[in-house]
Amino acid sequence: MSSWGKYKANESGKKSWSQEEAFEKLTTFCAYQDRCPWEIRRKLYEKGIKDEPAERLIAELVQEEFVNESRFARSFARGKFRLKKWGKNRIRMELKMREIPEDLIRKGLAEIDPEEYYETLLTLTEKKWDTTKEPDAYKKKYKVIQYLMNRGFEMDLVKEAIESLNTSTDD
């Protein structure tokens, strides 16, 4: 079944896994936190397992419910929003990078409560406004907008949040 020895080093010099060892290690990897096939593929590649053997392992992990893209998308969206305070655009981009289908990305983003989302945006806006040391109000506004956009918040909401500060900016 597997031609990899337990202690064979791969191209990067790291120890390779046998097929059996890989499955065992990956179940632990997936049980610790939700994973997607893309992350598992990367992990397997590091350990010298690629192509068909890697896809077989991923299929087995999916069948055994260790890997579920829908569950991953939902927990990823909730976690990145709540812990890292990322906006929906950033979360969407990260999920796309992980090759998650668009319908599952939408389901993941739907897990974010709109009121909590806007409150988080307002809090971040106020904090950034207060900590941005810029005497020119126009430049300060630009810096705060850039910061919030880089975090992945939508431009229309960012503008709304900035206007809600009741700052005396002259446009």
Results as ranks from 00 to 15, higher is better:
116 E>Y: 02
78 R>P: 00
21 E>S: 08
151 R>E: 05
75 S>P: 04
39 E>I: 07
45 Y>G: 13
52 E>R: 14
154 E>P: 05
141 K>I: 04
117 Y>A: 08
94 E>Q: 06
167 T>I: 15
69 E>Q: 09
98 R>G: 00
167 T>E: 14
103 D>T: 03
153 F>D: 03
99 E>I: 14
39 E>V: 02
163 E>H: 10
130 D>Q: 15
103 D>W: 04
169 T>C: 02
164 S>I: 02
124 L>M: 09
69 E>V: 04
158 V>M: 11
114 P>Q: 10
84 K>C: 02
84 K>H: 01
13 G>T: 03
86 W>V: 05
153 F>Q: 08
86 W>D: 09
50 K>I: 06
122 L>S: 09
19 Q>P: 04
159 K>I: 02
100 I>S: 06
128 K>F: 00
34 D>N: 12
12 S>H: 07
109 L>P: 06
167 T>P: 00
146 Q>D: 11
29 F>K: 12
154 E>T: 00
2 S>M: 02
111 E>T: 07
15 K>L: 13
73 A>R: 06
165 L>D: 03
170 D>H: 10
48 G>R: 07
100 I>V: 06
46 E>D: 08
29 F>N: 10
41 R>C: 11
37 P>F: 01
40 I>H: 00
45 Y>T: 15
56 R>M: 07
7 Y>A: 11
92 R>M: 03
128 K>E: 07
109 L>D: 07
54 A>S: 11
101 P>N: 10
63 Q>T: 14
66 F>M: 05
40 I>P: 08
137 A>N: 15
141 K>R: 13
20 E>K: 13
60 E>C: 08
3 S>I: 14
41 R>K: 15
97 M>N: 06
171 D>E: 15
166 N>I: 15
117 Y>M: 01
71 R>Q: 08
74 R>E: 02
121 L>V: 12
76 F>E: 01
4 W>P: 00
74 R>F: 05
134 E>G: 02
88 K>R: 02
45 Y>V: 14
97 M>H: 10
133 K>P: 00
64 E>T: 13
127 K>E: 13
114 P>S: 02
63 Q>L: 10
45 Y>M: 10
31 A>S: 12
51 D>P: 00
107 K>R: 10
166 N>Q: 14
87 G>C: 02
100 I>G: 01
126 E>I: 15
67 V>M: 09
45 Y>E: 14
2 S>A: 08
77 A>Q: 08
55 E>M: 09
170 D>I: 09
24 E>Q: 14
23 F>V: 15
91 I>G: 07
98 R>A: 06
162 I>P: 01
156 D>Y: 08
99 E>G: 06
157 L>A: 11
